[in-house]
Design a protein around this nucleic acid. Structure first.
Lengths: 115, 115
DNA sequence: CTTGACCTTGACGCCGGCGTGAACCCGTAA
DNA sequence: TTACGGGTTCACGCCGGCGTCAAGGTCAAG
């Protein structure tokens, strides 16, 4: 599968896919013409990446997540995951705090329009 | 109060304060030398602004919020607030969704390290 | 007068996830 | 051959909230 087809089937732009390769998130094989050749399983991988980006994670963190996932699958680097999970906790805490502050702001707005 | 003092008392950099003026969030008076002169009440206003930025709101939206607040205090523009509140709802929904996705990601991680 | 702390207005840099050309190769169909 | 719809690698642009010089004016103290 070439990049155009993967883009179409995942709904992700070719530019984004190339960007993911730059960041080491999804590195495809190459054919004799230098074209990127993707596997079927890469569709799922793209979905994973998109979900994590949508969750507010940066590509640098996602790379480590994928490494952790691969390591975990082979039973190696099991001690790397906890530190990563700690980072995810931190990001999660930030989002929670932001949501709380936003709720407070909305409360003030409601108070204003009630007055 | 000059900008340095306000910066010190609020913990916000002078650069940020000037930036807020550029964005129309906090426009101080000027003395004969062209120096920015802030009122005591601006300390509270800066706190407001900081809270809203921390909540993930952009300056463009915050300007409208402040206008709405002033308008609300005078009983004018009461019809502007609802649309603003809708935008706040949208931002809030985004944050909530991100938090949910992040939880999902963390769950997958936990699943991996357990396997 | 000089120093030094504080103020002024530009204006460029950064980060991050891409969009958007530019300029060029590949392979197939007409 | 030509055209065309793929692909390729740079490389600059954008947004947003500032950091960080740069090049000066202001003013009280020594």
């Amino acid at each position: 599968m070439l990049i155009g087809e993967l883009a179409e089937r995942t709904g992700v732009s070719t530019r984004a896919l190339r960007h993911y390769e730059d960041r080491g998130l999804l590195v495809p094989a190459r054919n004799s013409s230098g074209y990127r050749v993707y596997a079927e399983s890469d569709i799922a991988r793209v979905a994973q990446i998109r979900a994590m980006i949508a969750a507010g994670l940066g590509t640098a963190l996602i790379v480590r997540y994928l490494d952790c996932a691969r390591g975990g699958a082979h039973g190696v680097h099991l001690d790397m995951c906890p530190s990563l999970r700690a980072e995810l906790d931190a990001v999660s805490a930030h989002l929670t705090a932001q949501a709380a502050r936003l709720r407070e702001t909305r409360a003030r707005l409601a108070h204003l329009s009630a007055a």
